[in-house]
């Protein structure tokens, strides 16, 4: 029972962390972020299973995570009002080539980061952009002027 309770607590704790930490941080993983992620995973594992090396323990934990993940995605699918809470919402950051500073500040994004992202999508100037949207995944979608 203890393992299942730990798994439930940690699932929602990690879920809350990933929702509040900001989507850009999660989509752009620098080498330091990757190391931090591995260390965090190790800390979670130790708090979760502690000295339990059993197959039963592993099945309990993985099973609990799978059910919670299924439950969360089903809730998001069925209950529209829960979707923003569970998945987040897109946010417009450029309209008609004009950067929306207020929305950028909200997501702790800089203009330089958007320019970098635009260059990666073969867009040389933000003036060419009709719409840029920061998606739930943390990726930026650019729609250029036709």
């Amino acid at each position: 029972m203890d393992l299942v309770l730990r798994a439930i607590f940690l699932y929602f704790f990690v879920f809350a962390i990933t929702r509040v930490i900001g989507r850009r941080e999660l989509s752009q993983l620098a080498p330091f972020d990757i190391i931090l992620l591995i260390v965090a995973g190790d800390a979670i594992q130790q708090g979760l299973t502690q000295d339990d090396y059993s197959l039963t323990g592993a099945v309990l934990v993985v099973g609990t995570f799978a059910i919670l993940q299924l439950f969360t995605s089903y809730a998001s699918f069925k209950i529209v009002r829960l979707r923003p809470l569970l998945e987040g919402e897109p946010i417009v950051i450029i309209q008609d080539g004009k950067v929306l500073d207020r929305n950028l500040r909200r997501e702790r994004l800089t203009k330089e980061e958007i320019e970098e992202e635009a260059r990666q999508q073969q867009i040389s100037s933000l003036d060419q952009v009709q719409w840029a949207v920061l998606e739930n995944s943390g990726k930026i979608s650019f729609l250029t002027k036709s």
Binding site: E89, V92, Q130, W131, K145
Partner: peptide
């Protein structure tokens, strides 16, 4: 002005109407 992409509601996704509390 060009239409907003599908799925984007300008009031909510650009002007952040009803989303101000989310930051807090």
């Amino acid at each position: 002005m060009a239409n907003a992409p599908e799925g984007i509601v300008l009031g909510r996704h650009r002007d952040l109407q009803g989303r101000k509390h989310q930051v807090w």
